[in-house]
Write a protein that binds this DNA or RNA. Structure first.
Lengths: 215, 215, 215, 215
DNA sequence: CATGAATGAGGTTTCATTCAT
DNA sequence: GATGAATGAAACCTCATTCAT
């Protein structure tokens, strides 16, 4: 059938284009993960992807366009982890910890996400503006979860929700940064795990006190 | 004495040189505080200091030299805060918190230190290597303090020293990074203060439990 | 006849090709009319024609090929106007003025001709050579017409034919250029009309003197 | 005297800078005189001036900056010719013709002015806006002169001032363009001289009719 | 010591042209 | 025939570094 042929061709070409774009993005993320925005050369990205700089421009546009797309994709993937964890049946406190673990796992295994993190931590004049806003969003997410936990009883009542959210965020960001410097995020899941006790101590109801945090 | 006179003159010249160098370093730090290493132009630093690029080279050398000197000076100043706090008569736990407060104050008020922080958080290929080691040193400092606290009884016994040191470091780094993004570190002292309760909850002996952390 | 059929088919195909080529040429002319040769991108032409760059090459070849074809077509169309006007029954002086009017009308209404004008007025290293020769041809045409006018009495005798031809050409070129800058040649017919009196004053026999040129 | 020395040095440096800038501008004008804006490479200009592209940027800035400066300098030089001619004691009609001659001489001998002309005749998207306005100014100048001529009697009364100014402009622009194509403006003074009779025929009072225009 | 003009390598971006589909 | 992804050369621009004054 001609129609089918045409469709197939179109899908084939689109498919190729989309795939190439995805591959290029991964390469870009990997480069931004190990070089600062200004230091990363488009040539590096093109080499990493095995294509020419001309094609790079064709598919992803500007250097700033590339960075923005990496950032957007990173947010998307982190958002996916969030929703996936939230769908699990568990106490809210367990979900909070699950989110940390899930994100740590994602960061440790996905170079594009690593690149996004590096980008969002830099003061790149060319990108700025929305670079820092994601962190505010994550604080909001944390606050919502803590409040939910208070409703279902898995988080103690006498806690300042905003403060707790801020501290959780600082802790995670600190772990991210240090893991990034130390071993390219390979140790992030471990670092997060080592923080479980502190988090439970901070959030869990008083019963047994926060003795878990301690050896 | 003639010799003394000559020495005095020399010292005067050296002095002048040192002062000029110090002023240039401050300018460099301020620039690195708002621009990434690769984005910062030597012209920017020269402009900020009100001198010519030629003089900049004469006094501070290479771009990498400049960055290294900024980093070294930052470490020096942070070290000064540390020793100063440790000399105070107080329980070790109070000293730990005092160090955090002192460093936060320093970071918030000293552009050169801000520049050093930015530099040490970047994956600048040209600098690297020793960039990340300072953080390990601070972890070691924290570990030593926690252990001291256990000896004088201001820190609970049943704690994993290394783990606690790591967590303290992560918390401080996270606060640093987020304060840097949010308002150029102006909010860092406040952020650190808001963490006091969590730290006491983590470290203080069990008596009243960690109820302080909560509102 | 089979042969005829084949021929017809071929002619049909050729016909289609020729039509497509013509449409593409119009698009090319329109682009060259508003962008300099070097600034005009083949992509612009393809977009204007609503086809792909690949097809553009198939039909029109090189960028230089395209420009040359536009120039040739422009000359062709201007030549058509010339022969058409010359076939009218009228005094030679009226024909001269008629040629000016006809060309002005053509330029104002035909984007391809506009493109050709722009191309022939540029010092495009890639094209050059023959770009300027057309103007010499038009001077020759003018000279021939002025001489003819002297023979049929519609042009005064005591005139330097070559000089008059040169001046007529300068006047027309000047009007073209200024109309092009001012409003994309929309005002060219008007500009030429406003020159009628000057031309008649220059060429017409002495009877009433050149009082017509004046208000 | 120290002050004198400092002043001398400053003036020396400034002097050098200004001279270098002037030399570069001349080179830029020469290049724009033979290549279209888009075709002219900064390398060409730097080569013509015997310096590096870096210095070119240092002294003249952007490519657009360079073009704008060339255009401004061209206008300035043409304005100088205008005022110089107008200061001569002569009838207004003679001044009008004197302006044409003076400008023709300038154009023929000054490569920077030639470059300015080429630039102002191109539809360079990057420059546009003020590129075409100079011509309107010259029409205004012509109109003023023609009106002045009517007052002192050197120009006939029964003439449409605006129309005459427009025609004079067209004639000069046409001569410019054709002389540029033919022999890089070397023939422009001659071309303008050959137009003297036509101009006098157009503007001079009726007495002897415009018989001068004719051989 | 200080200045700022000069350099040149290197980065980003553009675009004519080709070719597999 | 038609498409558009791919290429690579070349253009513009930036900036660390040097050096004559």
């Amino acid at each position: 059938m001609v129609v089918a042929g045409v469709n197939g061709e179109l899908r084939g070409k689109q498919q190729r284009g989309v795939e190439a774009q995805r591959a290029l993005l991964e390469a870009a993320g990997a480069v931004f993960a190990r070089l600062s925005y200004a230091e990363a050369r488009l040539q590096d990205i093109a080499d990493e992807a095995g294509i020419s700089t001309g094609s790079l421009f064709f598919h992803l546009g500007n250097k700033t366009d590339i960075a923005h797309t990496v950032l957007a994709t990173q947010q998307e993937r982190m958002g996916l982890v969030l929703t996936e964890v939230l769908e699990r049946g568990a106490s809210t406190l367990d979900k909070i910890i699950g989110v940390f673990d899930g994100l740590a796992e994602l960061v440790a295994s996905d170079p594009l996400v690593q690149g996004g993190i590096r980008l969002s931590l830099q003061p790149a004049t060319e990108l700025d503006v929305e670079a820092s806003t994601p962190y505010q969003e994550w604080v909001a997410v944390a606050a919502r979860l803590v409040a939910d936990g208070q409703k279902d009883g898995s988080v103690r009542d006498d806690i300042d929700v905003a403060l707790a959210a801020e501290l959780l965020n600082e802790l995670f960001v600190g772990a991210q940064v240090l893991a990034g410097l130390e071993d390219s995020w390979q140790s992030l899941p471990l670092r997060v795990q080592r923080g479980h006790r502190l988090i439970r101590g901070l959030l869990a109801p008083q019963r047994a006190a926060s003795s878990e945090t301690h050896s």
